[in-house]
Amino acid sequence: MFKHYFEQVNNVAIWPIISLTIFFVFFLGLVIYVTRIRKDYIKHMEDLPLRDGIDEQNSFTNKIKNS
């Protein structure tokens, strides 16, 4: 069974520490990104559920395309 393939992995404790570090770095990046996000993009996204029919959707996309 595959549980016998490996008999030793040194320093099991390093696994969770690496993962926590990955998460922390990712989280920091996420926060930095979120603080720098464009207002018109947020507005567009927020309004998505409220617009069911015809609308000016893709207007944000056009804006960044033209900018």
Partner: peptide, 24 residues
């Protein structure tokens, strides 16, 4: 948001919420 007829409180928070939640 549909039922309340107003957008979600913070879309930025939802981004952080999503990634942190699924990761953790």
């Amino acid at each position: 948001p549909k039922a309340a007829n107003r957008p979600v409180y913070s879309y930025k928070l939802s981004i952080i919420h999503f990634w942190s939640l699924i990761f953790i």
